[in-house]
Design a protein around this nucleic acid. Sequence first.
DNA 1: GCTAGTACCCACTTTTCGGTAAGCTACCCG
DNA 2: CGGGTAGCTTACCGAAAAGTGGGTACTAGC
Lengths: 122, 122
Amino acid sequence: MKVSTLLGSSHGFTDGILPEACSSRTVLDHVTSKWGVLVIVALSEQMLRWGELRRVVEGVSEKMLAQTLKTLESDGLVLRDAHPVIPPRVEYSLTARGRELADRLLPLMDWIADNADAILAS
Amino acid sequence: MKVSTLLGSSHGFTDGILPEACSSRTVLDHVTSKWGVLVIVALSEQMLRWGELRRVVEGVSEKMLAQTLKTLESDGLVLRDAHPVIPPRVEYSLTARGRELADRLLPLMDWIADNADAILAS
DNA sequence: GCTAGTACCCACTTTTCGGTAAGCTACCCG
DNA sequence: CGGGTAGCTTACCGAAAAGTGGGTACTAGC
């Protein structure tokens, strides 16, 4: 079902835009969490190791990165590939589903990057 | 500048994905705030009054709706049109810039709505 | 005069988010 | 044997987000 059909002057929309406490809201919260978007975008280009992610996603703490990755992994958006070597080597990449998400996220991010200054100026 | 060119195996990406504390991060926070997305989507179909927004965006409190609308209005994404009549009548709609955003947000929301159940099942 | 409806605002409290710092494992190097 | 490294985990704490309950202004209707 398309969100864009949930509303409509012809329907009267007595129901809301996405019912409260539905699965879409939960996923939306995961994806639009403070670091979720940035991690997805970072991984959209290439697989990255833990330490690389920490550097690339500027400002994220270890705790938040671990938490974000765990959520995204359990959502099936990010793949965690741990090599049992010493020192540990863990590689993160997008799953097919994660790449679908990234495809829809990147245009948004590009638009934001283009318009951010104008938006804050007003 | 495209976000998708910020990274790249050929560049070495010693700098991060969007520098910390830049305008893009701020706008990203505004747009991906808990209620920001839902308000934009709700207004993407049609202009809505305050009370209608409260009902359509299920679960939002008056305080949060007011705060969200104020942020979006000062970002130039939402237009507030107050009619000086009794009882008060205030209409909210998207600006041209807000519609640009909504165009990039709706495909994302549609994808989330389509995949939410599968994502939470895993 | 009392109540209801619309669109808010403000103060207070609670809850959640996120940062800091420390510790842990298992090895390798010197 | 001490220090270093990579990838975490945990406990603690402050800040920020968000909910609650009240109040305001104005008029129409009973």
